[in-house]
Amino acid sequence: MPSWRKYRDYAVKTLIWLFASAALGFLFWILSDLVVNGLPNISFDFITGEYNEYKGITGIAPMIVTTLWIISVTLIVSGIIGVSAAVYLAEYSKPGPTARLIRFALESLAGIPSIIYGLFGYVFFKNMLKLGFSILSASLTLAVMVLPFIIGSTEIALRNVNRLYRDGSLALGATKLYTVVNLILPCAAPRIITAMLLAVGRIAGETAAVYFTAGTVYRYPEGIMSSGRTLSVHIYMLAKETGNRNETYASALLLVIFISLIHFIVNAASRVINAEKI
């Protein structure tokens, strides 16, 4: 081999390492900035306290509660619709215009940016259906937003279930519905649940769509009809309204910890699931 090719090889490899470590370097830059500025400001009072600019208290408990509310309502709505839709696509649909239309809609929805979902939720759920700024408005908006993701992942999960189970069940005289509900869904359940968890990460991190639909009131929500401020909206409001770095960094660090925890659980779970080879 001529030596210049060898040198070129080394040069390109170095370049690859350099670029890749630039990406990693940026990650550690952000994380260290978050930890250095955020960690000293996280305290028990901060996590469990209420927030009120006038009383000078800067807790984030109401924001955490609102975030959990929105996550649960969104998952319930998008979970039911998403799994049913995926069952239809994976088990019932035949290639044809209906299936094509549905897939087109899903792909388009996946490409729409969250701010457009925010505008849609604002007009449709808040104004048209008169839900107002509320957890319900926000959850329905987010449910539409994560639907393509949940349907896509669930469909993959359903299709990964061994063909033989299905054929065996049908051969034993079970109906299609019975097979789907009692055999295929339970087999696919672990993967469906990990998909839901990933959706949780996305819901918790979403700001634009929630800002337009749930409002920015920083009190404990009383139910799904009350307005509220999620943690991510809270970070935005702190950044734009108060200029107080300590609490903003602390909230940001907590949110990042929450979402990355979810991602690590998902990764660990996926490894187990793949090892079992359902």
């Binding site: 696509l89 094509r100 792909e107």
Partner: peptide, 20 residues
């Protein structure tokens, strides 16, 4: 419809091209 095809390869692909 194999699972590999779920990925998003552009909004309008599937509508216009169907199974291609």
């Amino acid at each position: 419809m194999d699972p590999a095809r779920i990925n998003l390869s552009g909004c309008f692909n599937r509508m216009v091209y169907g199974q291609n």
